[in-house]
Design a protein around this nucleic acid. Structure first.
Lengths: 246, 246
DNA sequence: GTTAAGTAAACTGTTGACAATTTCTTGTCG
DNA sequence: CGACAAGAAATTGTCAACAGTTTACTTAAC
């Protein structure tokens, strides 16, 4: 298998970290990539064998991922890739909205002119992509836009919480949904956030950011419901290959 | 085999029945109680010996606490009780303010009349305690007030994030500071929050809640700076037995 | 054919031992 | 007296084996 070739560069890269750290990242990758499907059990022996280590580091890695929220632990039965139902997704969206709003709010009071320009560049970029309907280009820039705002707040705990939420959200395989004027709508909201930041208005920045994520939630659920109503009744979450924009 | 549904609600309990869970809880207690001082190393052997278990469960528990943010892991050197400097405390306060605001905002749109009355009872209780300057009574009711709001949102991830922040905050041993009209001030802010909730106004509830925590931050730092300036120059964080009100 | 009991296999929970690394101690040299 | 190197002790990292529990399978009875 490709296991050895996959782990060797990782080990070199994370030399500082213990084996447990490498294992942790690998399991995380398996989960987020979908190789370990939602709800499935993570077999300690199988993972250990695949990575060429013993069960000790695997167990340590799993305990960390349980705390992170990617795995569920059931005593004497094992750890399972966390299942996300609609209520879970709603929770994640709401919390993300709050954190995104907070980031905007915090940044508004300290953003510099050059940082505003940097964000404007990204928004302009997305304007063009939206006009062309180029989701492939829009998507990574969108991610960068939100990540830059997050980073500029300088609040490491906020960053960590947000990123852990993003990972959890990936468990819900309903990736982005492009339909209608989603791209244009989304970037209009980006403009609103940017305007508030430029005006150094914390309250408006909060509200614009919060609403942006909530609208993303609405866009996603609307698209999801549309799919599930029209035939696809397999009831398994994440079956639709939808795409949502934030 | 007949009672899978029976075990589901008690998963948390079962988890603490597992050795690793017990160890985790115990280490957490040692940290939060101060028996394991900030910055000190957690000796795996010593903990294992003290709890009568082997090092395996101890290591698993530590990995979970690292993920939680209570411990720092330095490869080949061990895990250390996390140090909190002023910037860390500021981060925690800012994030708590955001989460508290979010909780208020979410609850405002769904709170029932009886829940409003329940919260009013707590605020009235604090009014009396504040009038009497009875911090010992005020403090737990204050905690309950915020916890009830949090719980009523029904967002388990929000609850978990908030509680993890509270634990982290405890690392900074500067517990509450009663000075001046802190109690009265604090409860005036509680009134503002309650009014917004009763009016079902999400925006006002957010702002009142957010400001409440930010004011708590200001009260804490003001008291802390006052102490550190007037003689106590031991420079170690958390040395002052101050008391802050939120 | 279905169900139930009993048994075997698989898996998790835990432990003690060994290897690798860091930290402490000690003795020597400048 | 201090710096430094060598060795010893302590500590973390990893592993393989064993015990207890769960799951899967086989077989027998109805």
């Amino acid at each position: 298998m490709s296991d050895l070739t996959a782990t060797i560069p990782t080990i070199a890269q994370l030399r500082e970290n213990s084996l447990s750290g490498v294992v942790r990242h690998e399991i995380e990758r398996l989960i987020l990539s979908g190789e370990l499907p939602t709800g499935s059990r993570v077999n300690e022996n199988a993972v250990a064998l695949r990575l060429g280590v013993s069960r000790g580091p695997v167990r340590e890695a799993c305990r960390a991922l349980v705390e992170l929220g990617l795995l569920d632990l059931i005593p004497n039965r094992g750890v399972f890739v966390r299942r996300m139902d609609r209520h879970d997704v709603e929770e994640v969206y709401d919390l993300r909205a709050g954190l995104t709003g907070l980031a905007g709010s915090l940044l508004a009071s300290r953003i510099t002119d050059s940082e505003v320009e940097r964000l404007r560049g990204l928004v302009d970029d997305m304007d063009n992509a939206a006009e062309a309907g180029d989701f492939r280009h829009f998507y990574p820039v969108n991610l960068e836009f939100h990540d830059v705002i997050l980073q500029l707040t300088g609040n490491s705990r906020l960053i960590k919480s947000y990123r852990s939420l993003v990972k959890e959200f990936q468990l819900f395989r309903t990736h982005g949904l492009v339909q209608g004027d989603a791209l244009r709508e989304s970037n209009q909201e980006h403009h609103a956030i940017l305007d508030a930041l430029e005006a150094r208005d914390s309250r408006i920045a909060y509200e614009a950011s919060f609403r942006h994520v909530q609208h993303g939630k609405q866009r996603m659920f609307a698209a999801f419901d549309k799919l599930t109503q029209s035939g696809m009744t397999s009831a398994r979450q994440g079956m639709g290959h939808t795409r949502t924009i934030e």
